[in-house]
Design a protein around this nucleic acid. Sequence first.
DNA 1: ATAAGCTACCTTGTTATACAAAGTAGCTTA
DNA 2: TAAGCTACTTTGTATAACAAGGTAGCTTAT
Lengths: 108, 108
Amino acid sequence: MSLRSQMLKGILEGCILSIIHQQPTYGYEISVILQEYGLENISEGSIYPILLRLQKEKLIIGEMRKSESGPKRKYYQLTEDGNEALKEFYLQWEAIKNPVDNIVHQGG
Amino acid sequence: MSLRSQMLKGILEGCILSIIHQQPTYGYEISVILQEYGLENISEGSIYPILLRLQKEKLIIGEMRKSESGPKRKYYQLTEDGNEALKEFYLQWEAIKNPVDNIVHQGG
DNA sequence: ATAAGCTACCTTGTTATACAAAGTAGCTTA
DNA sequence: TAAGCTACTTTGTATAACAAGGTAGCTTAT
């Protein structure tokens, strides 16, 4: 398993919450959006299990909608608990990013 | 298991490499240094296994030295492979940090 | 002396997660 | 009718942080 895979643990979930928070969206599009943000090659094997997990934890809710082109899509949006979890992710991200940045910039 | 624990996966190892790169040091002191950087409550149950793993992968080498006060200390320093791994960590950290920051700041 | 408390190291078992790999199926276009 | 894209799902694997426990040396107060 790659270093990147390890480093993404826990982070990817928060990113997906954040993307859904911006606009209701579905799995396949999330992979495209992540790409656009620079997180390339995040496979569906990562994204869909996260969506199912988030749904199970009631942080998001899904709804099937017909597509004008292609199969039906499962659009997700955040629940109230999801908004809380997202806030918590933001806090944790800052609490990790800043120290790590300082360690990295001091050393290298 | 906490969100923070998940988010630290892979990252903590790179931080420890970076700290050892700055100056040869030992496990107990690393926990203090991490604290000072703001990564609080990183337990020895996290640090020592990482040090043993890094040593096994020949990214660091350890050497016991007497302490003027207290038990002997195992000082570690980076090997050539360790320097390579550290550079790779820096690259991966930037490759993850920037996209995640953009996702986070876009969303909220 | 001796107990308490800090320093310092190590090990075992648990839990969670990214991802590879494989499968299913609808729609469009050549 | 086949290729190729869209879109969702499931199974199994590897790995890492950490809780919890253990060992032991040194210093200081009682």
